[in-house]
């Protein structure tokens, strides 16, 4: 445990930044892509239009932040939910690597996808 204490602050900062990004940006994305477009409340953008949007460097930077930081927010919260909610603290190491491994994998996929556009 003492070994991890030093990195706790770093992960907490990522958690906190991810929490802010998630609070401000995630609802509108889930609303549009998950509800408004599928249910026909709003016409989804054509491929040409959305491809044009994504091609812009600022959009790509925005999407990278949108995808990476909230994943670290998830990793932190989900880790502690498993620890406290289910009381499986003895699986500490496994959960730690699964949660942050997932967040790092998601960030890598986002970087790969957004880098290759254009």
């Amino acid at each position: 445990m003492p070994r991890r204490m030093s990195s706790e602050g770093f992960f907490w900062t990522l958690f906190s930044a991810g929490g802010v990004v998630a609070a401000l940006l995630i609802p509108v994305h889930l609303f549009l892509f998950g509800l408004a477009f599928p249910l026909g409340w709003i016409d989804p953008p054509s491929h040409a239009k959305i491809a044009g949007l994504i091609a812009h460097p600022l959009t790509r930077l925005y999407l990278f932040v949108l995808c990476s930081l909230p994943l670290f927010h998830w990793a932190h919260r989900f880790r502690y939910t498993l620890y406290d909610g289910l009381q499986i603290k003895h699986l500490n190491e496994v959960i730690f690597f699964l949660c942050y491994g997932g967040a790092i994998a998601g960030t890598a996929i986002a970087a790969y996808l957004l880098w290759n556009i254009g």
């Binding site: 491929h47 909230p70 994943l71 996808l113």
Partner: peptide, 30 residues
């Protein structure tokens, strides 16, 4: 409140799928 993080991650996964589909072309987007 803690479980809400699952749906935060879920939304990120959906957005990654959306980005990947846009990249693969109009058919994948549809």
């Amino acid at each position: 409140r803690e479980l809400s993080s699952i749906f935060v991650a879920w939304t990120v996964v959906l957005m990654l799928l959306a980005i990947a589909s846009v990249e693969r072309g109009p058919q994948a987007w549809a």
